[in-house]
Design a protein around this nucleic acid. Structure first.
Length: 437
RNA sequence: GCGGUCAUAGCUCAGUUGGUUAGAGCACUAGAUUGUGAAUCUAGGGGUCGCGGGUUCGAGUCCCGUUGGCCGCCCCA
């Protein structure tokens, strides 16, 4: 038996829902442009290997992947990062630095649905390539904060937790751990908030129990919530590299503070992000009440462009997902009431008046006004009701009396006042009333 | 991949221990209404009761399966 339901986890956008989505995208786009980011786009379908190369074979279970008619293994994109790395990598030599790009796109992941998570969703992605210093992080975190606060969200609603995998590498190596052990400890740190002490089980299975002295230091470090505490903890392990890293921290936090964003940013070494490819600062935006999953996340991935076949190119980026963000706006009562309103509604007396009205209707539309009119003959009462419901600010009245006098009546639907204008001056009169279009 | 829970009109829901042709509100359409606004009144369209099977004289109702939604676990780029 055929079924014509949409596929599980996929969303359909009826006009009201699409209006809200478009509003999100419009604001994000304007904000990114204000920060000097350029928009790009790329294919929805990509070679499966692009994601294997970045994330390993196990990623395949989470992908919408299949073999196309040419025998190619392909996947619907689950994220933008590998794609944008390829785009930038291919033209890196010719692109003006710094490379500041953004996109708003749809992604697909073959997963079970949950609150704030579906099989298709949109993300705003912003990335900066070619800038190794913390100025890139400053710019991106500022953009992230602005993308959320433009909707009316404040520092009481959300915050950005800022951490640094680089610092963790320094510290764990100073504690005597080798590369594999460092990665395993970071895995435990990533899960500690959720699992507590069980987070270290995986480490223990692989390498035996973590030395109590080391573990205590790790547990203390992941609770660090200020730069001062970082400096204090690391003071005994001083090195040139560490000093440089702490200078990066001061530049980043100083820059954000100078932008007036300090209240949005919380140093929090408990965030390391699970992904191994992050190489430096990492950050995630959460609602303050802790009711929702992460709203946005990002970090530095200096090795990824090279790993995907491009030149060595430092990079930082973040993404905001639309689903959790929409839930947050809804919870804070900030979902705007969007009306898709016409500018002008034409009230037409009868068939004779209709052809007179059509000339003006087309001219007004060509001038950029949104114009509605009834397809069929309707009583005036119905038409005025329809005019009010259309949200139009003006009604143009093409009645027999008016046309006989060579005029069209313009009714302002909010003030309920009317005036007559010569029939050949309608477009100018509408422009005058509505302030151009 | 696992678990919980739910499924009746576009939406929110009612539907008696299993019993006639499955209902209401909202929304939509039309009329009352041939020159002026969200009201009112009247009428109408819209349902294979998610789907399939079983029990029964009889299933929206009970049983099994399945699909889908929601919530959580795993995972979360």
């Amino acid at each position: 038996m055929p079924s014509f339901q949409s596929l599980p986890g996929f969303r359909e956008f009826y006009p009201d829902a699409l209006a809200r989505r478009n509003h999100l995208f419009r604001v994000w786009r304007q904000t990114a442009r204000a920060f000097g980011f350029q928009e790009y786009d790329a294919p929805v379908l990509e070679p499966l290997d692009l994601y294997r190369a970045k994330s390993g074979d196990e990623i395949e279970g989470q992908l919408f992947s299949f073999t196309d008619k040419g025998g190619r293994e392909v996947a619907l994109r689950p994220e933008m990062t590998p794609t944008v790395c390829r785009l930038v990598g291919e033209k890196a030599a010719t692109l003006k630095r710094p490379i500041k790009w953004f996109s708003i796109a749809e992604f697909y992941r073959y997963e079970r649905m949950q609150k704030g998570r579906g099989r298709c969703f949109h993300q705003f992605n912003a990335d900066i390539f070619g800038e190794p210093g913390p100025e890139a992080e400053t710019e991106l975190i500022a953009l992230l904060v602005q993308c959320l606060s433009t909707f009316g969200l404040t520092a009481q609603d959300f915050y950005v937790r800022l951490s640094d995998r680089n610092l963790w590498f320094h510290y764990l190596e100073a504690l005597g751990l080798d590369g594999p052990r460092v990665r395993a400890v970071l895995g435990a740190v990533d899960k500690f908030e959720k699992l507590g002490d069980d987070a270290f089980k995986a480490y223990a299975e692989q390498f035996g129990p973590l030395e109590p002295v080391v573990k205590d230091k790790v547990l203390a470090f992941l609770q660090v919530k200020s730069l001062a505490a970082i400096e204090e903890t690391l003071a005994p392990h001083g090195s040139a590299a560490l000093a440089a890293r702490l200078a990066d921290w001061r530049r980043l936090l100083g820059g954000l503070a100078a932008m007036g964003l300090a209240e949005f940013v919380q140093v929090d070494l408990g965030v390391v992000r699970g992904l191994a490819y992050y190489t430096g600062f990492v950050f995630e935006a959460f609602d303050r009440k802790g009711e929702l999953r992460a709203i946005a996340g990002g970090g530095r991935y200096d090795d990824l462009v090279g790993k995907l076949g491009g030149p060595d190119l430092p990079a930082v980026g973040f993404a905001i997902g639309d689903m959790t963000f929409a839930l947050l706006l809804e919870a804070r009562g900030l979902t705007p009431a969007l009306v898709q309103a016409a500018d002008v509604y034409c009230v037409i007396g009868g068939e004779a008046e209709r052809s007179a009205a059509f000339g003006d209707i087309h001219a007004l539309r060509a001038a950029g006004f949104a114009v509605e009119y009834p397809f069929k003959e309707l009583g005036f009462g119905k038409q005025f009701k329809a005019a009010a419901e259309s949200g139009a600010r003006l009604a143009l009245i093409y009645g027999g009396d008016e046309l006989a006098k060579g005029v069209v009546k313009i009714r302002d639907l909010s003030t309920r006042t009317e005036r007559e204008v010569p029939a050949d001056a309608v477009v100018a009169a509408v422009r005058d009333s509505l302030g151009g279009a």
